[in-house]
Amino acid sequence: MFLKEYFGTIFRSVRSLLKGMKLTGYYFTHPKEIHTEEYPDNRATLQMFDRFKGEVVMPHDDNNEHRCTGCQACEIACPNGTIKIITKQELQPDGKKKKAIDTFVYHLELCTMCNLCVVACPSDAIVMAQTFEHSVYDKKQLKKVLNKPGSKIMEGVE
C-alpha cells in the first residue's frame, strides 16, 4: 500500500513534469509562434490604433489656420496644468477687438494622456496624435507650442 502510493506519487510527478517540458519543447521547435515585435526595425510598418493617445496636437489646415478660439476650456479641464493658453486681443477687419490665442503652451512632461482636454474642447481644435516616441535629452524640449507661428483662427469658428 505504501509502495503503491510512493510509486504513484513518482509517476504522477514525472508525468506532470513531462507535460511542462512537452509544452516548452513544442515552442522551441515551432519558431513561428514567436511573438517578439522588433520595434525600431518595424517602424515603417508599425501602425498605431487610431484612438491611441500619444500627445495633444492642434491640427492646422493648408492655410495655416487652426480652430482654437482661446476659450481655455481645455486649460480648466486639465487636471495637471499641462496646458497654458496665453491670449491676446486681435483687431478684426471691422475694427472690433476679438480674443485670440497668442501661444498655446503644452507641457508634454506633465501630460497623462487622459483625453479630458480633447473632450472639453467645444470647437475640436485639439486632438490626440498617435506619435509615441517622445524621448528627448532635455526636459525643456517637452514644452511645446501647439499653434504654428503666424497661424490664424479658421473662418467661422466661434
Binding site: 491611441f52 493617445k53 483625453n115
Partner: peptide, 21 residues
Amino acid sequence: MEESCGARLTQNYCVPGGVMY
C-alpha cells in the same frame, strides 16, 4: 483596450454618466 480606449493601462475611459466615447 488600446483600440477602444486609446491607452493600454491607464485608460480613463469611464466618465460620470457613461464612457468617454
